[in-house]
Design a protein around this nucleic acid. Sequence first.
DNA 1: TAGACGTGGTG
DNA 2: TCACCAAGTCT
Length: 359
Amino acid sequence: MREAANPSDLLAWYDRHARSLPWRVSPADRKAGAIPEPYHVWLSEIMLQQTTVAAVKSYFERFTRRWPSVIALANAEDAEIMAEWAGLGYYARARNLLKCARVIRDDLAGAFPRTRDELIQLPGVGPYTAAAISAIAFDAPSTVVDGNVERVMARLHRIETPLPKAKPELTAFADTLTPLERPGDYAQAVMDLGATICTPRNPACGICPWQAPCKARAAGITNELPRKEPKKPKPVRYGIAYVVRRLDGAWLLETRPDKGLLGGMLGWPGSDWSDQPLEAPPINAEWIEMPSEVRHTFTHFHLRLRVLFAEVALASEPKHGEFVAKLAPSSLPTVMRKVYDVVKNQLDAPPTQKASGAQ
DNA sequence: TAGACGTGGTG
DNA sequence: TCACCAAGTCT
């Protein structure tokens, strides 16, 4: 007779195997009375939305070094935040991060709310993040349901309904397991289990603290769960990026509108990304097409960008955008940095023989 | 409610 | 090479 999954077994595993993360208070420190900074918990949770731990680490370090408190972050310029977020993706998160920080500064006396119901009203904070902050920062018995927890619950209970339809059922199962003791550690423990043991492919069932109660393991179908609805194919879109360098080395860039793709981020002027007619270049110039196009895949389409480059005189007046004297490529979203790289490589290449074959 | 919204690592 | 995937939210 199989025993039901026990939160204590998972917590005991977590005590031994918790990952050490820059924003985390270890189970040992927590038992000694340490409490995580709500600011750190909130910032890390926003960054971790649909984003891997490995990608988040350096961003978290840079943000907390530059803005040590939510007030400091609230006082930052929009452009500073967007530039520091560049490369992490889902830029609406950065815009909502600032909105949220300013709500906390202006309306909440600088303090994060403690309950799930209050937290979920903040910009950029949804059901998962509200539960995570209340559990991890305030040790409230909130049930966190992210992709990890969905996968763990689907396997533990052998839920064969495909996602996202199975979500309510999985949430209900997760709810029955959330303990009143150490709920903050428990929330992190389930997610660590999903990230390190109960992985999407080739889970390490042999060392799983919940292997005994796991129904998917008993049935030998761990690799098939959770089931998911088939994805729609991504269309290909085409466009042109116009890269203009002034003779003093300044680059012509524009800040994209807040709404939509790459909203609020710096980017090169360009055509729309579609099979539609092309927009006129942003300045009168002699255009040179770069030998390689830029390919980039977004969540819902593939993009192929032709890159046209021009060098212009100091007095040139662009039709739109503005010249940036000192461009930090790291402040560009990745697709725009790829465009920059193509131009930079071409400009740096030996003018005569580009295909030397050396090395 | 289903689609928009980024990116880098992985098998 | 390429589809899948990751600590989701918003509209």
